[in-house]
Design a binder for these strands. Structure first.
Length: 830
RNA sequence: GCCCCAGUAGCCCAAUGGCAGAGGCAGGAGACUUAAAAUCUUCACAGUGUGGGUUCGAGUCCCACCUGGGGCACCA
């Protein structure tokens, strides 16, 4: 069983021996494969599946330790627990490694997966290995493609020409969600704009539902994640107002609609701005100003997003030569083109009210445009101060809106434009459609064939998967600005499925977030060959009862997965609309207050930690260090302390001399009381994700048991056995090896993981006497030992009679006495 | 600028509105030991970021501010 280590000295805790001993036993028992027959209530625990970038690191160790606590707890409670594992195995690093080593990305990817799988097994994750999946397996991406085609049929996948975020280093486009502070999320290069014809998912159609359906998640998802999603969706209420742009020479009169959240300030509009990079700007500009606009656009395009987004930057823009007519007062407003107006938010055009919008005011001051105050907020005139006023106030200089407060004026203004037919109430979202094309190789090919005669033709379902060509490797995959797949001419050139004419495959691959948007569904039925999954099975297991992962996915992955689930609901494939009922974001593992990184040289190698302290000690340290959602600073924690505690707990096994199955009822009541209190508290604490406190409670239990053995009831007392067994069961959630070995030393067969959560004897939780606190005016003056079932009246009498109280009152009258029997009395003097 | 979260002992952290301390780390002392390690026992240390408020009673609830962390950001 243990080929390397020597027989340990009896009574000495050796994590290495224990690990070597139990791993093969567990493999045989296959304790964590759900029975999946409906005989037990089902529960689904899921950790965000890993990307196979080398071996597991400290972050994985933390996240998976957390998920495993929940999975193992539910298992102990008797639920049929689904706790699967898989890999998000498409992605750029594999491709970069392949280019560097003149290999195929699959070689690097699957080698890493094997390494990680072995590490996960050593780390004793309670997973069902039979459901393992990889998104880069053709058996998986076949169904990613199938789902794409269903989206396509519903009009939810479409192509358009659009300026997109372009990473010049990775030579690929990026979704908005992948641009962080104007830089590529992956490599940090400044992102630029490029106009390309790309595939999008129409996630904006679901903006409202994505927002509304968050309601029931409150309390089960971290508030900050919900807030971030809400922000990202960015719902804002306002109005569309249509302005007529006057004819100019050959240019006809035309209507342009703007979105505004402040229709009340329409009378304060002094100019009109269109996004410089929008089509609209080119359409509107007069020939006299066309070259200035072209020049301006040129200068804007060379700016990186980082420069562009700097709020310190001076406002820039050019006049278009045209004028817009304010529908409320008929005023003529000059139309400018500027880059501070975004082409893809709202309508790409705004009505500028400099008095009440800082950006408009900055622009007005830069170009000497008039400023007119229309809301009196009691502050100084923005024209003089340079500070726009945006708060509550009363309307002035606004015709019939005069005298109305802001909110009423907004409503009235909308009524006015609506009556004119020039405007209406509307809701606008910040959310954009999801750009999913990637000009990279190692991803799911987009199952579309482009035919000159038929257009975009879906690959017929029975021809799926469209497999990646296997003969491209090394330099073939280097970024060229077009997909590497384009070079595989044999692969690209096909017959059109509709007209059999010559046609070409789409050479882009999908964003890997598409792959990860449905993997949690596949886990319910991972071997399905005629559908992505069996809906009945998915409906039995999902939604996921507890999802665990890093907050870095607060927007991207979670928003996309929620979107997918809603679309699949609409397609009738699932009967729920939210995939994850509860979400836990574990914190980061830091070292010395900073994230571990190569450049800082503060990385801690997980494998070395496991070798040095053992799996259980590392798992315990991760969980004990702080509440799950807080960061763990490895410099602040003590894995050796954890190891010490585990040894201490394990040693209890040697001191229990009673036989298994002995009735605990006759055992030492004080210890039994601690044992059952611990059991009850632990259950509550696990439910509330306070894993660190559970461990503190087990430590207490171990201390109490130790004391009972050494200087109390003694090792033969049945209560000591009971305490040791409860210790093993609770520890099985955190330190599976130690718990298993302790369980064996207590005379039980494997596995403690399936031992079941012992029933709490409520009668042991009640104490005979309790210490009542006697306060005078909230300050503690005395303590009384009283029966636990003392009445309020009796306690009041008792408290009032104590010498301490009498002395403190010093003859003062009593206004009131608060009694919370049996724990507290508070006497309030007059 | 807007939005979230957090500030409790030297450190990590506990505390259904009711005795500020459960647990651990680091530290001191003792027992065992020829000695050390290991083990066991034991001790000390803060009044909860600041200022108000609500309450019989506030670490906990409310308001403002300070500090730290995170998110979004020319989003009309």
């Amino acid at each position: 069983m243990n080929p390397t280590a020597e027989e340990p000295e009896a009574g000495t805790y050796s994590f290495a021996d224990i690990e070597a001993k139990w791993l093969p036993v567990w493999e045989q028992l296959d304790t964590f494969k759900p029975v999946d027959d409906g005989s037990r209530e089902r529960r689904y625990v899921l950790d965000m599946f890993p990307y196979p970038s080398g071996d597991l690191h400290m972050g994985h160790a933390e996240a998976f330790a957390m998920g495993d606590v929940v999975a193992r707890y539910w298992r102990q409670l008797g639920y049929d627990v689904l706790h699967p594992i898989g890999w998000d195995s498409f992605g750029l690093p594999a491709e970069n490694a392949a280019i560097k080593h003149n290999a195929h990305p699959s070689e690097w990817t699957y080698a890493n997966i094997d390494t990680q799988a072995a590490s996960f097994k050593r780390y004793a994750i309670s997973a069902d290995w039979s459901r393992r999946l990889q998104t880069s397996d053709p058996e998986y991406y076949r169904w990613t493609q199938w789902l794409f085609l269903r989206f396509f049929e519903k009009g939810l996948a479409y192509r358009k020409d659009h300026p997109v975020n372009w990473c010049p280093k990775d030579q690929t486009v990026l979704a908005n969600e992948q641009v962080v502070n104007g830089a590529c999320e992956r490599c940090g290069s400044p992102v630029t704009k490029k106009s390309l014809n790309q595939w999008y998912f129409r996630i904006t159609d679901y903006a409202d539902r994505l927002l509304e359906d968050m309601e029931p998640l409150a309390g089960h998802w971290p508030e900050r994640v919900l807030a971030m999603q809400r922000n990202w969706i960015g719902r804002s209420e306002g109005a569309h107002v249509t302005f007529a742009i006057e004819a100019d020479g050959d240019l006809p009169r035309t209507d342009v609609t703007v979105f505004t959240t402040r229709p009340d300030t329409l009378h304060g509009a002094t100019f009109f701005v269109v996004a410089a990079d929008a089509e609209l700007a080119t359409e509107l500009v007069t020939s006299e100003h066309a070259s200035a606009l072209a020049e301006y656009r040129e200068s804007v395009n060379t700016l990186s997003d980082i420069e562009r987004q700097s709020t310190e930057r001076e406002k820039t823009g050019v006049f278009t030569g045209r004028y817009a007519v304010n529908p409320l007062n008929g005023e003529k407003l000059p139309v400018w083109a500027a880059d501070y107006v975004l082409a893809d938010y709202g309508t790409g055009a705004i009505i500028a009210v400099p008095a009440h919008d800082q950006r408009d005011l900055d622009f007005a001051r830069a170009f000497d445009l008039p400023v007119r105050m229309v809301v009196d907020t009691g502050e100084d005139d923005p024209a003089a101060t340079g500070k726009a006023t945006t708060g509550e106030g009363t309307l002035v200089n606004s015709g019939e809106l005069d005298g109305l407060p802001k909110e009423a004026a907004i409503q009235r203004a909308i009524e006015l434009v609506a009556a004119q037919g020039t405007g209406e109430r509307t809701v606008n979202y910040r959310l954009r459609d999801w750009l999913l094309s990637r000009q990279r190789f190692w991803g799911t090919p987009i199952p579309i064939i482009h035919c000159a005669a038929c257009g975009e033709v879906p690959v017929p379902d029975e021809q799926l998967p469209v497999r990646l060509p296997s003969d491209l490797r090394g330099e073939d995959l280097a970024p060229k600005g077009t997909s590497p797949l384009a070079a595989a001419t044999d692969w690209v050139n096909v017959r059109c499925p509709q007209c059999s004419g010559p046609a070409k495959r789409d050479t882009d691959t999908m964003d890997t977030f598409v792959d990860s948007s449905w993997y949690y569904l596949r886990f319910a039925d991972p071997q399905s060959e005629d559908a992505p999954f069996d809906s009945a099975k998915v409906n039995e297991w999902l939604p996921v009862g507890q999802y665990v992962g890093g907050v870095e996915h607060a927007i991207l992955h979670l928003l996309y997965s929620r979107f997918f689930t809603k679309v699949l609901f609409d397609l009738g494939l699932v009967n729920f609309t939210e995939p994850f009922s509860a979400l836990l974001n574990q914190g980061q593992v830091l070292n010395g207050g900073k994230a571990m990184s190569k450049s800082l040289g503060n990385g801690v190698n997980l494998g070395e930690q496991l070798d040095r302290y053992g799996v259980d000690a590392i798992r315990l340290t991760m969980v004990f260090a702080s509440p799950p959602e807080d960061d763990v600073d490895w410099a602040d924690v003590s894995p050796s302390g954890s190891a010490k505690f585990l040894a201490r707990a394990w040693r209890l096994g040697a001191d229990v001399t009673s036989e298994p199955g002995v009735d605990a009822a006759s055992g030492d009541r004080a210890l039994r009381s601690v044992t059952h209190r611990t059991l009850a508290d632990a259950a509550d604490l696990v439910r509330n994700n306070k894993f660190n406190v559970v461990i503190a409670k087990v430590m207490e239990l171990v201390n109490a048991t130790r004391k009972a053995i050494d200087s109390g009831a003694g090792g033969a007392d049945p209560a000591v056995r009971e305490a040791a067994e409860v210790t093993a069961v609770i520890l099985s959630l955190f330190a599976p090896y130690t718990a298993e070995d302790l369980w064996e030393r207590l005379g039980h067969p494997a596995s403690v993981a399936a031992a079941g959560w012992p029933a709490v004897d409520e009668s042991l939780l009640v104490q005979d006497t309790v210490t009542a606190i006697v306060q005078v005016q909230g300050k503690v003056r005395d303590r009384l030992e009283v029966p636990a079932d003392i009445t309020e009246d009796a306690l009041r009498e008792l408290a009032l009679g104590t010498a301490q109280v009498q002395r403190t009152l010093a003859g003062r009258d009593i206004r009131t006495v608060i009694v919370r029997a049996p724990k507290l009395v508070n006497i309030v003097p007059a």
